[in-house]
Design a binder for these strands. Structure first.
Lengths: 216, 216, 216, 216
DNA sequence: TATGAATGAGAATTCATTCAT
DNA sequence: AATGAATGAATTCTCATTCAT
């Protein structure tokens, strides 16, 4: 569906190398100049190949952007609220999850900003972002449902709806903090996000006070 | 310093009229075509003036976009968590506040989408959006602090930090719903937002269950 | 002939003042930005009047440039090789003449540069420059003829031709020195110009050597 | 540093051909319309290529003008006062030198006029002209010094300063004659220039009278 | 596969000049 | 006389995409 006119993948070893060089170069240029100001000629220059070569592997800027996103998928697939081996305290799991998410966001801030930018321009990328977000939402929804069933969370909340709101809350917070540079001490960010998340679900936690948390 | 070539505001009635026509036209075109696809010539055509006239008042697209945003400031400065006459139930105030915010967002969805899009393109607009966000954040932070002092909200939260998270939560929620069309029944949205907000602050509410809310 | 469509001169006192303000402003702007980059709107802004007012007094940029040149005529009409009261030594007269010319050029370097620039653009100004040069050439030609008749200068030179060459020599030298900034000590410039001029005419001078001249 | 966006020179034969076609076309258009009235689109039309191709090799009009000047460097680097094989009469050498210079100037009058015009507009070209002028000045300064050392020229002149004045004299004379069309018989021009130059340096010449010279 | 030159549609922008007030 | 807003013709410049080698 999205690969209608896509160039066939490279078959020779040299082809693989060239394509990879283009994708790497594109990431550099996109992060440096943003999606709109990135010129294909900048990308090919960075990749040390000619402009014509670009079209051997990609049809246009959107397509190479998709390739960059595909290549960085692993860096971006944020950890969700999942089981942590040997830990069963819901609050601790949530905290670990939030910390992992925020750390990952911070590490990939440039890329996240790019994703945000392009998803406001290209519907296909918007779809990509939504799909990625949804993975996160669903994982958290399952966790919430589980807590509800175990009587540990507010049963009056629709798990999916609550997850959408809370997942969005964290991602928006991360965006404001690491892309818009709203700032704040990292541990405090984790603490606040976690406490609000737990409170929101009415998790019967025995959270320590702020000061105790901070000492960690 | 940044206003090198800034056009001066009109002094005659005619000038005021023309400038306003341009701003109005720009809003129409921006909402119709998006920021990137809007051509200045479309704007001047819509405003029934020559292309040259555009430059009497603005230097470029960014500048007229800023003017559009300025002109719609009142529509966009969302109501926050403030006192509602004769009501002292915190949960009711929060609900009213959220409802007002979401309604306002829904009404101006196109404009909000634009703001979102352009703030990922133009640093000046990014700053504008951030500033507007902070108005909201600070107002809510004051309300949270007040509730804490009255012993009605979780005292272990930093008011500003908590407000950043929760304000972001609502705005992200509104964006997903009204811009990305994630859907959902409006009353349910208000209910969920409010419940999560109250829970998050550990407000000692006596909220009715979901079904009761829905009947409203 | 040149005043075909010229605006009528101002009659009221206010008109005189405004026109003068425009001419003064034009000189400032022309000297600052050069003829080509000077915008009429810059001139009117500098003169504290509206753009429309410009056309009350001038038809276009060329016309106000002519007015600037007219206004500075006195500063620019360079002294020539004329009688100096009580002095009859031809070499001394030539030296005084060259010194006066070079000083005048140095003082008005900006204006001379402008005249040079515009005369390469506007034929009318080219004519003006030629006419001004010619005044200088003729005055010097008369002086040369006089010296020849008195047996003090090389009789094998055509006075007008020699004057053209020598007058041009000084003006070109002044241009290179004060506009192109070729530099050099002022007294040395005067000395060299004078000595060459005298030599060229084979004036039977008793010129002191370089070092003696320099001590002056 | 100043070559931010400088286009790189062509590497293929085709590229060389196209670039050359553009430079040739530019010379035609510049000579026909003058620098200011020359439109890039005229140049590309004359070169039979698209407007975009222009930017493959040049950034703007100034740059292609510089390329035209570079390409005509050999035609323009005027012969100076140098040794003429088998001739040792200084006056004869000076005459040959002046004749060569004036002939070269006459041949390239259009180009010289352009150089004059543009150097009053573009500082880079001004620098270029100055540099070219200095080549001439220095060569003549060396010749003057040589004559002084051999006791054949006025020792009280600084060679460089005298050369500046005299070289400027010839170039100004040529400009007036061939660009401003001040007229005059060519042999008479050569005669006058030579006689004045020799006189100015007090070269002990045995120049024939004017009429004798003219018969050549 | 790779190259790099050629293309050209399309939009922004300037500013002298006019003109109604 | 003065004002200042409106005009629009005219050019430059960009860069994704094609294509011959």
């Amino acid at each position: 569906m999205t690969e209608d006119t896509a160039r066939r993948p490279p078959v020779t070893r040299r082809g693989v190398r060239t394509r990879q060089a283009l994708v790497d170069a594109a990431r550099v240029i996109f992060e440096r100049d943003g999606y709109l100001d990135a010129r294909l000629s900048d990308i090919t220059a960075e990749a040390n190949c000619s402009t014509g070569t670009f079209y051997t592997y990609f049809n246009d800027k959107e397509e190479i952007f998709a390739a960059v996103m595909e290549a960085t998928k692993n860096e971006m697939l944020h950890p969700g609220m999942e089981h942590v081996d040997g830990v069963d305290d819901p609050a601790a799991i949530i905290e670990a999850s939030n910390r992992a998410y925020l750390e990952s966001y911070r590490r990939n801030a440039k890329l996240m900003q790019l994703l945000e930018q392009v998803s406001n321009i290209d519907p296909q990328v918007r779809e990509l972002r939504r799909a990625r977000g949804w993975v996160f939402v669903e994982r958290n929804a399952r966790a919430i449902k589980d807590l509800q069933e175990r009587g540990l969370a507010d049963p009056d909340l629709d798990p999916v709806m609550a997850s959408r709101v809370l997942s969005g809350m964290i991602s928006r917070f991360a965006y404001a903090t690491f892309v818009l540079n709203d700032g704040g001490d990292f541990e405090e960010l984790v603490y606040t996000a976690t406490r609000l998340w737990c409170n929101a679900l009415r998790i019967d936690h025995h959270l320590p006070g702020r000061d105790a948390m901070r000492k960690k």
